[in-house]
Design a protein around this nucleic acid. Structure first.
Length: 174
DNA sequence: GCCAACGTTGGC
DNA sequence: GCCAACGTTGGC
């Protein structure tokens, strides 16, 4: 089982958009970079877990966690002349581009900002934090994943829960 | 909107 | 195979 970070621009496809899909699942199509393609085709497998990252966003954040729910298959958008991801180099007999299906697991609320990730020494080696890093499918090391899960847990617990008065009321009398 | 960093293309 | 020109990404 491996861990990954997938980038998406939220004004194009956000984590909430993923959650709104049927079965909260979608094909991760449109990847048009060879290094990312190789990861998708060769190394990403069913059951792997994904940090769903919002790039080109204010702020840029990890917005959710998803999982891989199938093995790689040819990216059908590459065959579709009407798609903005159409690529005549790819055809069903010899596909160039691949996708995997991913399903939302949970949102990260509040989301974890890029700024916070940068502040953590244990994450200093993350590909995402490298200057000039543009790779849209990145491997995440287990120690990085674990550190990020701790940040998520810590952050979630410092969130104000329901206003006290409201909580009391909802607990009823006794 | 700016622009640095990066990937791709294509002439040679 | 080199590399300049170009297009894209993505933080700021």
């Amino acid at each position: 089982m491996r861990y990954w970070l997938f980038k998406s621009e939220p004004n194009s496809f956000s984590f909430d958009d993923l959650r709104a899909e049927t079965n909260q699942t979608t094909g991760w199509d449109g990847v048009r970079n060879y290094q990312a393609r190789n990861f998708l085709r060769d190394d990403v497998h069913s059951g792997d877990l994904i940090l769903f990252y919002h790039s080109n966003a204010e702020p840029a954040v990890i917005a959710g966690i998803a999982e891989v729910v199938g093995e790689a298959e040819p990216d059908p958008t590459a065959f579709d002349p009407k798609s903005k991801y159409f690529d005549p180099k790819s055809n069903p007999d010899l596909p160039v581009w691949f996708q995997v299906a991913i399903r939302a697991v949970r949102s990260v609320d509040p989301p974890l900002s890029l700024h916070l990730l940068r502040s953590r020494p244990e994450l200093a080696e993350m590909e995402l934090l490298r200057k000039g890093s543009r790779l849209s499918v990145q491997p995440i090391q287990k120690n990085e994943w674990d550190a990020i899960m701790r940040l998520i847990d810590a952050d979630t617990h410092t969130q104000p829960s329901q206003p006290r008065t409201l909580r009391k009321r909802s607990q009823g009398t006794k």
